[in-house]
């Protein structure tokens, strides 16, 4: 059984939803305070959604320098798993643990709506329970989710297969209408080169029970749990 740690910064609000989604999936979790120096030996760190430090300066900028992030960096260096959701994705980019940046949505509106994601790779701990090309129905909820990488960085990402999720239409095709924020190449989620750190704007924890309209988000958490259970400690 994998152990999950959910980081709480001032202004984080999705930690309880993540804990609930993990409980639904049958996995306990602990909260990790932003001032903590260690990760209590967890296998996977979740950086949840919210508005850490009020999004002051830039979304995720202040949180990326919080004391807990030094421990998260060591965890990543050891090959530990990290899932950054929404504000957590912004934190990972600001920390330099993932390439690129997240800008104000192209439409300048906060977007809170279900989207369809296409799974681009199934050989990562986060997606190995999915079929290749599978489509997941998961909501987004953000004002600054427009993924940006300059052309050279984007080419590297594509070449190394670091794009894990893209916004697509119901038929699984890239479509500007299906892209809620104007992200380059329809990018909704990327992994680092080792495939151990995932940042994604959509909220899998909000799609973990059919009463919420979809349980597709559980696949991400179950994938991590099964990968963690098989990993050497």
């Amino acid at each position: 059984m994998s152990r999950f740690g959910i980081v709480v910064f001032p202004g984080t609000w999705s930690d309880r939803d993540c804990a609930h989604a993990l409980a639904v999936a049958g996995h306990p979790s602990v909260r990790l305070w932003h001032q903590d120096q260690d990760l209590q030996g967890v296998d996977c760190v979740i950086l949840p959604g919210g508005f850490s430090y009020g999004d002051y300066l830039r979304a995720g900028a202040i949180a990326s320098h919080a004391p807990i992030m030094a421990a998260v960096r060591r965890h990543v260096d050891r090959g530990g798993l990290v899932l950054g959701i929404c504000n957590g994705f912004q934190v990972l980019c600001e920390a330099g643990l993932l390439p690129g940046a997240l800008l104000r949505n192209a439409a300048l509106q906060f977007r809170c709506q279900p989207v369809t994601l296409r799974v681009e790779r199934v050989d990562t701990p986060f997606s190995h329970t999915c079929r290749a090309g599978a489509r997941l129905r998961i909501p987004v909820s953000h004002g600054e989710g427009r993924y940006y990488a300059d052309p050279a960085m984007l080419a590297r990402l594509e070449q190394r297969g670091q794009v894990l999720f893209r916004y697509v239409d119901a038929a699984g095709r890239l479509d500007p209408e299906a892209n809620p924020n104007g992200s380059v190449a329809g990018i909704a989620g990327i992994v680092n080169e080792r495939g151990t750190v995932l940042g994604m704007m959509p909220h899998p924890e909000r799609a973990c029970e059919m009463v919420l309209g979809s349980a597709d988000g559980l696949r991400v958490f179950q994938g991590i749990a099964e990968a963690g259970a098989g990993a050497a400690r």
Binding site: R58, C93, P99, G100, A101, Y148, D150, M153
Partner: peptide
């Protein structure tokens, strides 16, 4: 280090 994100 902080005030500017050199990516964007």
């Amino acid at each position: 280090q902080l005030l500017c994100n050199g990516v964007i």
